[in-house]
Amino acid sequence: MATNPPVNEDPVKTAAPRRPGNQAPEMCLACGTCAAGCPLTGQDGFDPRKIVRLVLLEREQELIASDLPWLCTLCGKCEYACPMGINIVNIVRTLRGRVARDKVPGMIHKGVALCRQTGNNLGLPAEDFEFIITDVAEELAAEEEFADFKIAFDKPEANLLHTLHNKLVNTQNEDLVHWWKIFHVAGEDFTIPRENWEGVNWGLFSGDDEAMQLSVGRIVTHMEQLEIQNLMYPE
């Protein structure tokens, strides 16, 4: 039951980051725009308006203990139409960040943990990665018009740093070829890092700012060390 609000040291309503033009959740009109537009409203009790209202009442523990923050796809349809510009997406993400890490849904939790340790969400060793990439590149070079196609790993001063979605490395590596064909025909000077090549950041979804920062930092390091100006990030 709602009562007068409790006292909280660092409530989500103030901790959740705001993008330019965003307003604090106090500004909520309770108008229902967000809930009326959300594709998940009504699924297992999900309702973005309720989430904002509970955060406003500093009843975030109820949310943190529930599955509600994990139902959201962070698509932002609610926030796009919110007449008050409330940072709904970041509120949900901040709530996720306050969930104990072992309570984070399995796959995301595992992916983030592996990425921290190994530099990619699959936990793939560098030699295995290099083998897969080289193998796929050789397959492409077997085609007549791509006979001279080669992958350059960690090439300094390349024009483009090419990171990869782990799905393309793991199960759908035939899709890599499409990119490379274009690059080859366009004469693009690109390179792939041997390590820390992960091109999706699951810290974003798990609300783990530290993991997110780590992943971003690794890419920045590559670009600084190899002196590369452009980045291809498939997320």
Binding site: L29, C31, G32, T33, A36, D47, K77
Partner: peptide, 24 residues
Amino acid sequence: CRVHSLQPAGAGDDLMLSYLDADG
């Protein structure tokens, strides 16, 4: 309830609108 957006309903000229009713 404030309305989020409008969409064409099917192939015709009707309009589809989503809203929260009094019971949420």
